[in-house]
Design a binder for these strands. Structure first.
Length: 466
RNA sequence: GCCGCGAUCGUCAAGUGGUCAUGACGCCGGGUUCUCAUCCCGGAAGCCGGGGUUCGACUCCCCGUCGCGGUACCA
């Protein structure tokens, strides 16, 4: 840097959740600030009274913290700065850069016949009340210097006389944005590409307000859905909180988000946050939109889960095991879970999948996958013999995984079957499913009595139905 | 409509004026394995189209096409 401290900001509207696109924007601002040793400001754009609520603002902060994104200044609330905006608006009016207008939206639309934009009708009417409009230059152009896209030029003739102060005196986003970035001495504006078209208006406002230190911009590529549209609250899963609830780890979420539009110099994809900070350069960000691929998020999350120390995995899994579990809560036993945790950890893509992998341990009777049951037991001619053999062998075998493995292998050999085939009906009878953690460890943890009981039940059920 | 941005496997990324165009996810096949998962090996799959510039363009320029964003007294 050239001696000037970099100052960036993330300025979400408190809509009640943190949008994944917003989270990515926050992350890139944060990465850039940390990389250059700059300052990261959190600013809440709550000029809409309905959104100016402490709980909504707390929610955003909580989610940012969850992702590990901290800020150096703020949160600064725009709702507390209306005086500053009003002063700026008055200055614009006084210097002839803005004028009052009393046209309704319907008036304007009727006059312009569907063409976008305001026609300047009130420019010279000398009104002293109404909405305040910025007098956009009739000629010339404004160039946005963008670190990701290069210089982007906008002709002033294409910029209408936009409103800066509503009839009720409140500031619109463009004014608040210009004033705040000036007051907070923001040097780099890093935000979504959807705001690129609004940038010349902000620049025009700052210029009219006498600003000579324009920031540099970086308009990040949009994050899109499978139809390549900007992620929207209506049709897409956009709340970061929701991913948290679905069992994604913050580190995995953050890592995946970082990969949307950026990549480190080497071909690593999974990398610690320290390395991201060290390598992140804003002008390395791609300009084209990125699809939010849940499959890839799953893969990254699974990798992060597997990398956890077992104790951490257990601790992180607890909320899913204790809150609204698929078994009677009093039947849950931590020691039992800990015994199979390493086996589950290797198989879970999300923490939300954990309960389903261990439910057979805590349920009176396992949840039965009917398809698996039919295939491995009901329609399996050797199932009765295998179940009977298992019952006989397990009755007095030394109860640990190795011994169970041994006697079951012998059982398979007696039936001239591979162990894989022979264990199928046992697994389904005991766990209800055809897939799951390794069988013999599972039986060991379940215990002899409960194992035998389930095997008998399956065998008896068979004889009744046949 | 107008303004703007974008374009490398299905997806996310890398890439150079001359490369067998790289990695990852996903997919397919194989190996390891008590199922599954992990792990290992292998495979299919791409430079939007047309013009230029050049000895030579995926790469640079222009046009087109397509996609997307914006076009509010929302942010």
């Amino acid at each position: 840097m050239t001696g000037v401290t970099v100052r960036v900001r993330f300025s979400p509207a408190p809509t009640g959740y943190l949008h994944v696109g917003g989270a990515r924007t926050a992350l890139f601002n944060w990465l850039y600030a940390r990389h250059v040793g700059g300052t990261f400001i959190l600013r809440i754009e709550d000029t809409d009274p309905a959104l100016s609520r402490d709980d909504l603002i707390d929610g955003i902060q909580r989610t940012m913290r969850w992702l590990g994104i901290d800020w150096d200044e703020g949160p600064i609330r725009q709702s507390r700065r209306s005086e500053e905006y009003r002063a700026a608006a008055e200055q614009l009016f006084r210097t002839g850069h803005a004028y009052f207008c009393d046209c309704t939206r319907e008036d304007v639309q009727a006059r312009t016949k569907g063409d976008a934009g305001y026609d300047g009708r009130c420019r010279e009417r000398g009104l002293t009340a109404g909405a305040l409009r910025f007098r956009s230059p009739d000629e010339g152009e404004t160039v946005v210097h963008d670190l990701i896209r290069g210089d982007v030029t906008f002709e002033h003739t294409a910029i209408e006389d936009f409103v800066v102060l509503r009839t009720d005196g409140s500031a619109v986003f463009l004014l608040a944005n210009a004033v705040d970035d000036m007051d907070m001495a923001v040097t780099h504006v890093i935000r979504g590409e959807d705001l690129l078209a609004a940038t010349p208006k902000v620049l025009l406002l700052r210029d009219a307000l006498g600003d000579t230190e324009m920031p540099v911009f970086a308009h990040l590529p949009l994050i899109v859905n499978e139809k390549r549209q900007k992620l929207s609250k209506r049709r897409d899963d956009v709340a970061v909180e929701e991913y948290r609830e679905r069992g994604y780890l913050p580190e995995a979420m953050r890592n995946y988000l970082a990969l949307l539009g950026w990549s480190p110099a080497d071909d690593r994809e999974i990398l610690p946050i320290e390395d991201m900070v060290a390598e992140f350069e804003i002008d390395d960000v791609k300009a084209s939109p990125a699809f939010f691929d849940l499959k890839k998020l799953d893969a990254i999350n699974a990798e992060y889960i597997r990398a956890l120390p077992v104790a951490t995995f257990v601790r992180e899994s607890l909320p899913w095991l204790e809150t609204d579990p698929p078994w009677p809560p009093e039947r849950f036993d931590l020691a039992t879970f800990e015994a199979v945790a390493p086996l589950v950890q290797e198989r879970a893509r999300t923490l939300a999948e954990v309960p389903g992998m261990v439910d057979f341990l805590f349920l009176e009777q396992p949840v039965v996958d009917q398809v698996a049951w039919d295939r491995a037991i009901t329609r399996n001619p050797t199932a009765p013999a295998l179940l009977a053999g298992a019952i006989a062998s397990y009755r007095d075998v030394h109860w640990d995984a190795a011994a169970l493995h041994g006697v079951t292998t012998e059982l398979a050999e007696r039936h001239d079957l591979k162990l894989a085939k022979a264990q199928a009906p046992i697994r389904v009878a005991v766990t209800g499913r055809s897939v799951g953690p390794p069988l013999f460890e599972s039986l060991h943890v379940l215990g002899r009595e409960r194992t035998l009981e389930r095997l008998r039940r399956a065998k008896d059920g068979l004889s009744f139905s046949s």
